[in-house]
């Protein structure tokens, strides 16, 4: 937002690109969770575009992004975040999008700040991203440009280098002061907090998915389901996804034709999807776990409907699992 504004204030025409990888914390997640009593959450990228008065292009990169996440040339960050490869990929995509003949953009602007992030914004990483993306000196970082070698738009005089900034380090105070000076009283989530791959719990669930399926791969539905519910794996060959609230219940409903499902019928309780191949004894255990999260958790018995994806349904009456019988290790 700041980087775009700084360049726009020099009379440059700017348009925004927002890549949807499937791992964005926003949007999908907000759509899934119930919003009782609350207004729908905004899409921050669109909100920023409106604040700046620029066009925003939202690009679906779900399929292409798999190669970035599954085979990151520069490895992962603290969790499963392939930040360096991710940044390089996005700059390369922006380059391909923006420089297409009919669009005719001259350079790319990003909001990176030298040393702000531990992996992708290290001093050594910044030129690497420019080089490996193919953008080279057409990649301008207005917030730290003054402490980096001059880029093409600076050398050509398209932008005034002296009016750019030399921010560095993890302290965001200079950016906050600049935002206030530019008249912004509110800003979107800084980098990192908007990506599920920087989240330890999400990364653990993704690793568990790869282990269970015996290969490192995913479809959009897989990574969406990792954002929803409690994930409980009582055995290597099956996992339960138990909804936590009404919005998740509604969302999981959409998967009942793909997964066997369980739902308490004698008491109010969550919808649960069963992912994997289950024997009858596994299903009975699954029903006891679902009962444990129902309003019948203190009852002697809870009736749970078990439905196959083809619609065949049968009822199991089970004793809810006691908390002590649910080892913490089962929670993925």
């Amino acid at each position: 937002m700041l980087a775009a504004k700084v360049v726009m204030d020099q009379g440059i025409h700017v348009e925004g690109i927002n890549f949807f990888t499937g791992f964005c914390v926003e949007s999908h997640t907000h759509a899934i969770r119930a919003r009782e009593g609350g207004a729908p959450k905004r899409n921050n990228a669109l909100w920023v575009a409106e604040q700046l008065g620029i066009r925003l292009h939202v690009i679906d990169v779900i399929e292409e992004y798999k190669q970035v996440l599954l085979h990151p040339k520069h490895g992962y960050g603290q969790h499963l975040n392939p930040c360096l490869d991710c940044k390089t990929f996005m700059v390369r995509k922006a380059l391909a999008w923006g420089f297409m003949a009919e669009r005719g953009f001259d350079f790319i602007v990003t909001g990176e700040v030298l040393g702000q992030r531990p992996k992708s914004q290290r001093k050594a990483a910044m030129p690497m991203i420019a080089r490996e993306s193919g953008a080279d000196d057409r990649l301008l970082r207005p917030l730290c440009a003054r402490i980096l070698p001059p880029t093409l738009p600076e050398r050509e005089g398209w932008v005034d280098r002296e009016a750019l900034f030399g921010f560095h380090g993890r302290n965001r105070k200079p950016q906050i002061e600049l935002a206030q000076r530019l008249g912004f009283s509110e800003w979107a989530q800084p980098a990192g907090g908007c990506c599920f791959l920087t989240n330890a719990h999400y990364s653990r669930k993704l690793t568990d998915l790869w282990t269970a399926q015996g290969r490192k791969d995913y479809e959009l539905d897989d990574i969406m389901l990792l954002k929803v519910g409690r994930h409980i794996r009582p055995a290597p060959h099956f996992k339960l996804i138990v909804s936590r609230e009404a919005g998740e219940n509604r969302y999981l409903e959409g998967y009942r034709k793909r997964f066997p499902s369980l739902r308490p019928t004698s008491h109010l309780g969550p919808l649960c999807l069963v992912d994997g191949q289950t024997a009858p004894s596994d299903l009975a255990l699954a029903a006891r776990i679902v009962a444990r999260y129902s309003q019948g958790r203190e009852a002697a018995a809870v009736t749970v409907a078990a439905e196959d994806p083809n619609g065949e349904c049968r009822e199991l009456t089970v004793a809810p699992l006691a908390p002590a019988e649910l080892p913490p290790a089962w929670h993925v």
């Binding site: 759509a31 919003r35 729908p40 905004r42 899409n43 669109l46 575009a49 008065g53 620029i54 066009r55």
Partner: peptide
């Protein structure tokens, strides 16, 4: 069907 579309689609239309 996603209620988010009620906010996001008009926002996208406004910027374009």
């Amino acid at each position: 069907t996603d209620p988010g579309a009620l906010a996001d689609v008009p926002a996208w239309c406004r910027v374009h």
